[in-house]
Structures are given as structure tokens and as C-alpha cells.
Design a protein around this nucleic acid. Structure first.
Length: 509
RNA sequence: GCGCCGCUAGCUCAAUUGGCAGAGCAAGUGACUCUUAAUCACUAGGUUGUAGGUUCGAUUCCUACGCGGCGCACCA
């Protein structure tokens, strides 16, 4: 990594120009610029009948290209809206030509000038006044892009190293409009979700990130400490238990979009902090929640892409045609595994399930190292999950896997729970919420026993939550949706790092 | 935590069996008043991730470490 205090010859040249500017009395870092048009608006403001006498515009942005051609120069100014070409002529700029000669690619400038169309056909600003807004003392790692006649773009060089792209996201964003587009899409997704829930009477709330007792999921937490209270605290691993307390308090429909923190490995689908949407609705069961997430997802796909058919890439980079036309197929967990050649997880012994895992090619040590609920989960992953490519609901999970879900009304061995899968990845997890305090107490006690037996991810006994349930929580349905994974799907990005602006990294050196 | 791969100029990449560390772009100087990967000429730019080792000689081989990518494990 480059030491920021050591200057290479490229940066030295820019610092020399800065010094020359200051010697001329030019501020290298201005305070603002009054622009009349964005780059895109400027291009749209020109009509061919205007000829050489197009309207005057003032635009501000970064010099994305800069071509020295003696007594003229061409540049492209890039702002958030796009690019527009600039044309500098020495005879038109007079004394300001000295300033032009001290510009570099990547500088922020404001220009005033009139629009015209060049002989080669590009709408361009003939610059009459130039203002330096911010000198770029370090060159951006730009590639050169060639735009073919058909609009196809080829980039030469540029910022490729994934380590630099994630560490210096500012540079990645500055040189890659397509990366900016991913995060614009992400914002549209979140905006759509908020609007969807707000329109249906949901209240957006914020619950504690710092918790003295964490719960609502199976995961290891981050630890911290409050100095004034002198107590240990944990960063939340889920919002669930606080949001359901709000149902007790009479808030019938609530949601929260925020970060959860899980102290676990980092890979293509896991970042230690990630964005979770959870919503809870009183007087609804998991079927109602399924109908709603289906409506949300279909609405989102239609809003963003104008239809329900999408081509996306699986983890091996192969294109897959996805059909979001509702209703999505609904499979039952136990039957689904059986129908794909797996064992009946309700009646099979642990040994039978281990044998089934071996048949499916799962390494023996994996199968041997777990039992009970985890073993069932392994069987699910081996036999059913690989088939869940199209949007699919999997319903009615065994009770051992779901300590916060209500028992199934028709089969006490199951819970009223579903997960939504797309492209083999879990996007959402929901249930008819367990609101019987005595049943919840028994489930917590079971979790405590598993923790005592060495399961670090088993949940804690949350006495305050039981007390809340004892006051009476209305029947309710609730769901958790991983926003990062949803954006990965919609933006067709292969890694969660590509949808998180600053993904977790080890510190540099 | 384990395995594989990578780390060379500001960026993207070369370097034969272990034998003078190179190119394109970017940069500097010069030419050029409609260019757009501008073009042309010249110039400069390196502790080859870090620390050791083997060797007459290491970008290359060995060991350790650092950072990253991918896979595995963990993790709904």
C-alpha cells in the first residue's frame, strides 16, 4: 500500500501545479459554485436548430478526461447525472488560459459556456469562464474507455484490484459509474420497501442496537462495554424480540430497517454487520405474511425492471432465468425433502439422517458432528435447498429449528414458519409468532439446555420478554428480510461486498 | 481456523531454466485551434508486499509473516 505521506512523481507534478495556482492568487479549493444545469440537463438543453448559438449553462463536476491539443483542449466533465464534453480555446479564454494549463484530469471545476455540437456530433460546452473548485492532488486510477458506435463500452486498465476497490471505495465509486448505479438501486429498493409498508399502516421504529441480553436469532455476538454503567453490552444479532414487545404495547404494525451484527466468518454472503428488515403485523398468521412478502417482491421487481422475468447469475456465474410471476410455489419442508429423495426428517433417527447425508455426498465428519435440529437442517441443505432456484416458499419447519415460532395448528411437531428462497439463497424467514408465554418459556429453557451442552449459538432465557408475553401479545405474523442479499439478487452482484459500500476488511498493515 | 492462488512503476499487466526488471496507459517537456483510448517526438518513473534463507547471482527456489481473492469450515 502506498504511504500517503510519500509522494510519487505523478503527485508531485500536481502539487507543483497547486503551488503555481496559489502563486497566481487562484484558490485551489473553492467554497461552492452556482450551477444552472447538470451535465445531463445541459446535453438535453441543446437543439440542432440552435447551431453555434446554444444556450449558456453553468455546470460543475469532475474532469473525467482531459485532452491537450495545443491551443485547444477537450475534456469531459462528469457529475452525478452523467458527462458532457468541454471545449477550451485559448483565444476565447484570454488570461484564464493559464488556469486551463494548470488543470489535471480528476480536478473539480465549474464552467460557464454555450452549447454547440461538434463536427463529430457531440453536444459540447464552449467554455467562456473556468473556476477551479477542487484540485485533485492524487490521480484517480482511471481506465480509458472507448465507446463503440453501438454504445458498447470497452475499458482499458483502470481500477481492477478488488482489495483496492473495497478499501478505497471512494476511488472505486469515482471511476466506476456502474458501481454507483448498484448503490442507487439499493436506495430505490429500500425506498420502495418503506413506501410499501408505510402505505399499509406500518410504523417505522428504532429499537436498541446495544443490548444487555441478545436474542432473536442463532449467532455469536460482538461484545462491548458501557463505562458509566460498568456493564457488558452486546450488539444486537436481531431486532425480533424488541419489535414483538411493541405488539404487546399496542403497536399493531411495526417495522425496522437497521444493522444487525454477527461475530462470524466473512464470505460472499456474510458481512459482520448487515442490513435487516423485520416487520410484525398483529392478527395475521404466516400465510398472510407470505402473501405480503410475495406482493412486495413482485412489486419491487416490476418497479425496477418493468416485468416479472429476470435473468440473473448463480454462484458459478451461469445465467438463470427467474420468473417472479405470483403465486410462487409453496413447498412443505418435510414433504419437499422426501420428494427429492431425502429421508422423512420427522420419523428418521439421527443415524438414518447421517446415512442420508453420506448418500448425498456430505462429508462424514460434518454429519457426525451434529444432531437434532442441526442435522435436520443439513438434510434440508443437501436435499431441498439446491432445487430452490425459482422464487419458492418452504413452509412448516420442524419445531427444533424454530424456538420463536408458533407450533403448527395441525401438527405439533412442526411450526408455522416459512423461508423464501431465490437462486438457492434464503431471502426471508417468517413465522406465526409464538405468543404463548408458557410455551415460549419452555422453548427458552430448551435453548438454555442446548447452550449448557455447548451450543454457543443457542438463545438466552429472556425473562423480560416472557413478562411482556404474559401481558398478552396479539396473534401476529412477522418476517426478517436480508436487505443485502435482496440487493445482491436484484442488482445481480456476486458478493455481498459489492452491495455494501464499505465492507469489513482487516486494517491495512 | 484450513487449503489453493495472487501481491512487480500512480493504474493494468509482462519478464524463457535462477542471469542487465519491461510495456501500455497515466506523468513531464515539445509540436498541434473540432478532439474523444486524440496523435507524434523525447524524458523521467522500481527497496519486485515484509523479514529471513539457499546461491557467484533471486521477481523467479525455500521458510515465516502481512494483506487480498476463491473454496472449505463456521454462519439460517
Amino acid at each position: 500500500m502506498t504511504d500517503t505521506t510519500e509522494r510519487n512523481y505523478v503527485e508531485q507534478a500536481r502539487r507543483d501545479k497547486r503551488a503555481a495556482l496559489e502563486a497566481q492568487g487562484v484558490r485551489p479549493f473553492a467554497y461552492g459554485y452556482d450551477r444552472s444545469h447538470t451535465a445531463a440537463e445541459s446535453a438535453g438543453a441543446y437543439r440542432d436548430e440552435m447551431g453555434e448559438a446554444g444556450p449558456e449553462v453553468r455546470v460543475a463536476g469532475r474532469l473525467a478526461t482531459f485532452r491537450d491539443q495545443g491551443k485547444t483542449r477537450f475534456a469531459h466533465l462528469e457529475d452525478a447525472s452523467g458527462r458532457i464534453q468541454l471545449y477550451f480555446r485559448r483565444d476565447a479564454l484570454g488570461r484564464q488560459w493559464e488556469l486551463v494549463e494548470l488543470l489535471d484530469a480528476d480536478d473539480h471545476v465549474g464552467v460557464r459556456g454555450t452549447l454547440f455540437r461538434t463536427r463529430s456530433g457531440e453536444v459540447t460546452i464552449r467554455v467562456s469562464e473556468l473556476t477551479l473548485l477542487a484540485k485533485a492532488l492524487r490521480p484517480l486510477p482511471r481506465g480509458k474507455r472507448q465507446v463503440a458506435d453501438d454504445g458498447a463500452e470497452q475499458v482499458f486498465g483502470g481500477l481492477q484490484d478488488p482489495e483496492l476497490r473495497y478499501r478505497q471505495r471512494y476511488a472505486d465509486l469515482a471511476v466506476h459509474p456502474e458501481v454507483r448505479a448498484v448503490f442507487q438501486l439499493r436506495a430505490r429498493v429500500v425506498r420502495f420497501i418503506r413506501r410499501f409498508l408505510d402505505e399499509r399502516g406500518f410504523l417505522e421504529v428504532e429499537t436498541p442496537v446495544l443490548q444487555s441480553l441478545y436474542g432473536g436469532a442463532s449467532a455469536r455476538p460482538f461484545h462491548t462495554h458501557h463505562n458509566a454503567l460498568d456493564i457488558p453490552l452486546f450488539l444486537r444479532i436481531a431486532d425480533e424480540l424488541y419489535l414483538k414487545r411493541l405488539l404487546v404495547g399496542g403497536m399493531e404494525r411495526v417495522y425496522e430497517i437497521g444493522h444487525d451484527f454477527r461475530n462470524e466468518g466473512i464470505d460472499r454472503t456474510h458481512n459482520p454487520e448487515f442490513t435487516m428488515l423485520e416487520w410484525y403485523m398483529a392478527y395475521a398468521d404466516y400465510h398472510a405474511v407470505a402473501a405480503m412478502i410475495e406482493e412486495l417482491l413482485v412489486g419491487l421487481v416490476r418497479e425496477l425492471f418493468g416485468g416479472t422475468q429476470l435473468v440473473r447469475h448463480d454462484e458459478r456465474g451461469r445465467p438463470v432465468a427467474l420468473d417472479f410471476t405470483p403465486p410462487f410455489p409453496r413447498l412443505r419442508f418435510v414433504e419437499g425433502i422426501r420428494d427429492h429423495g431425502g429421508p422423512d426428517v420427522l420419523s428418521a433417527t439421527d443415524d438414518e439422517m447421517r446415512a442420508a447425508l453420506r448418500r448425498a455426498g456430505v462429508p462424514g465428519d460434518v454429519a457426525a458432528s451434529c444432531g437434532g435440529g442441526k442435522l435436520i437442517d443439513e438434510v434440508f441443505k443437501a436435499y431441498l435447498e439446491p432445487h430452490l432456484v425459482q422464487p419458492t416458499f418452504v413452509l412448516d419447519y420442524p419445531k427444533a429449528l424454530s424456538p420463536l415460532a408458533k407450533a403448527h395448528r395441525d401438527d405439533p411437531r412442526l411450526t408455522e414458519r416459512f423461508e423464501l428462497f431465490v437462486l438457492g439463497r434464503e431471502l426471508a424467514n417468517a413465522f406465526s409468532e409464538l405468543n404463548d408465554p408458557d410455551d415460549q418459556r419452555a422453548r427458552f429453557e430448551d435453548q438454555v439446555r442446548q447452550r449448557a451442552a455447548g451450543d454457543e449459538e443457542a438463545q438466552h432465557y429472556d425473562a423480560d420478554y416472557i413478562r411482556a408475553l404474559e401481558y398478552g401479545m396479539p396473534p401476529a405474523g412477522g418476517i426478517g428480510v436480508g436487505i443485502d442479499r435482496l440487493v445482491m439478487l436484484l442488482a445481480d452482484q456476486p458478493s455481498i461486498r459489492d452491495v455494501i459500500l464499505f465492507p469489513a476488511m482487516r486494517p491495512e498493515s
